[in-house]
Write a protein that binds this DNA or RNA. Structure first.
Lengths: 332, 332
DNA sequence: CTGAATGGCGCAATCGGTTGCGCAACAGTC
DNA sequence: GACTGTTGCGCAACCGATTGCGCCATTCAG
């Protein structure tokens, strides 16, 4: 850890003033070519690097962007983060990441901490437990915020998200057209906006084809394995057992498949699955979900990053807006 | 985006000096309780937040830590990053993450960029293509560096990594004791240190049991699917086809399994796999690898973070050192 | 009534750069 | 020789917060 090398030392060494050193390093025309050369030579020899904290302080910019998401270990979010990192890196920004673990307190603390750390903007995918939104209001007074995937819909905020309703509708339409019936929905937790959107697409499709909606076929899960096991068992216990399960996540489908197998059902024969995330490993399953909705998490992240870039770099003309990424149904 | 609220404004509003405001906010004993109360009240009302950039500048600390890793989308690294984030968050540090994509140039640029952004320390899992180490030498003059998983072994650097040799040895010993023979090794790329360590464990175990080493059984892969397909086909084409494949990653095993199935071999009957990463979804496979080496990426990351914390907070007494995390063989 | 002690607060320097302005020296013009 | 223009560089303010030191006013002891 070498001692701090500042312009002051270069200036003293050369018998010139600090301002001359500063200008010489910027090739300022008012500095003589001889002096400029001398300064640059010594700076090179001493491996001078300007103190970024001083520059950030002076410019009131840090070129850091905060990202708050539920879990880094969830593939959806790590892919989104990767897209964010790529987009921001190109523009010279760094990514500061924090996990909310779906906890409101942690999320609020993370947003607060990012502000205190002096980021120039924040990307958020909301915790499922977030009921109080005031931490975003406070933060947005200081820096722009853009939501992605798990968004807060409000004219004040930009948001990037997938068209879940249409995705669910498309998946249902595909299944119905294929002649499948008895389609159940294993949906996410109530606290997520996507849950109601998914249900809407499910219901809309049934209505379009004049199929009655059986509320016993719609289950909201709470993300724990126990609950998944409970709900799939409830479905399998129904007199009119579903033939297709529309699951809101591959992992939910996998856990449900296990229960099915234990109960002697053959996957993709007695019962099939369609999922809302396209995890790469599913192609390796002997009996994968017959279709899946690809939500393009990388594009979600990178679009959100681009909105944030605009908000940070042209704050005067920037108007909050929403971008909808169309998911794609992938048939296996 | 409200205008910057500084101490100056509070001071002017109250007709006191900036230093009084500063001290009042710190409950300095030399400030009268009346003044202190007034200042704190107004600060609260105006939602005053100290300018972190000014404080960072003054203290020459940012409480940011840089993390450079190959890919965020690789589960191993996203779990490691999660462990890093948890450990550092507790101590008030934030994590700035960058992907090297296994490219030397990007890695060097990332390290450089982190230094310029003013991080207090750096955690690195090296790019497989990194041949030149000078970017680390330059960086370490400025801030401490700790390596994790893909480490640079050098007395100057701290490093945290798994005991791959022993893990490979243990896996082999288990297989040999179980009576398995004809065990092949699908290893990683030459450029990774872990590759030679894994090979050493493989060879050591064979030698211990006086089993001749067949070099045709040892393949080094380059991480592309084509190469994996090529190498598994070479193995299956051998006169003495292996019965067990020790694969250095679950995804390699999955790709190889596909080829095996295509060639009419039954997994876990005609041929079985043992892998070096314990990806959660493998438990959902109908025929998963019969054993797997858990490398505890979260612990790897969090141990590295703890070393870095020590290096950052007590730089005078800190001595670089290595921590070895013992992997665990998990039998399915 | 004077001297010291104490409480309450402000001045100014500091961190490391950047930048407007001004000063000096010199050349060129009339 | 006085005037203007140009070149080359330094002074000092500034960004926002922190902090050593010193000043003034009050209080209390002697």
């Amino acid at each position: 850890m070498q001692a701090n090398l500042t312009m002051k030392k270069i200036a003293k060494e050369l018998g010139v003033s600090v301002s001359t050193v500063s200008r010489a390093l910027q090739n300022h025309p008012r500095i003589g070519s001889l002096t400029t050369e001398k300064v640059q030579k010594l700076a090179r020899e001493l491996h001078y690097q300007p103190n970024s904290r001083a520059i950030n302080f002076k410019n009131n910019r840090s070129f850091n962007v905060g990202v708050v998401l539920p879990y880094l270990t969830e593939q959806f979010f790590s892919i989104a983060l990767s897209g964010i990192e790529e987009t921001l890196m190109e523009k010279g920004y760094s990514v500061v990441v924090m996990q909310s673990k779906n906890d409101y307190e942690r999320e609020a603390a993370a947003v607060d901490s990012l502000i205190r750390h002096g980021v120039d903007g924040i990307l958020v995918s909301m915790a499922s437990e977030t009921y109080n939104k005031s931490h975003f209001n406070n933060a947005t007074h200081k820096v722009p915020i853009v939501f992605f995937d798990r968004v807060l819909k409000h004219p004040r905020y930009s948001a990037v998200y997938g068209n879940i309703t249409k995705a669910a509708f498309d998946a249902m339409e595909y299944l119905i057209e294929k002649g499948y019936s008895d389609i159940a929905l294993m949906n996410g937790p109530n606290s997520l906006q996507a849950t109601s959107e998914r249900e809407k697409g499910y219901v809309d499709a049934l209505k379009k084809y004049n199929i009655p909606v059986d509320i016993q076929y719609v289950k909201n899960l709470n993300l724990t394995k126990e609950d998944t096991v409970l709900k799939i068992n409830e479905l399998l216990d129904l007199e009119n057992r579903p033939r297709i399960i529309l699951a809101f996540h591959d992992y939910i489908a996998l856990d449900a498949m296990e229960v099915c197998k234990q109960r002697g059902l053959k996957i993709n024969q007695d019962i099939s699955f369609v999922t809302f995330s396209n995890l790469s490993f599913c192609t390796y399953l002997d009996n994968p979900p017959i279709a899946t909705v690809e939500q393009f998490p990388g594009e979600l992240g990178s679009s959100a990053a681009q909105l944030l870039l605009e908000a940070m770099e042209t704050p005067d003309t920037y108007e909050p807006r929403e971008i909808v990424i169309e998911p794609k149904l992938i048939i296996r």
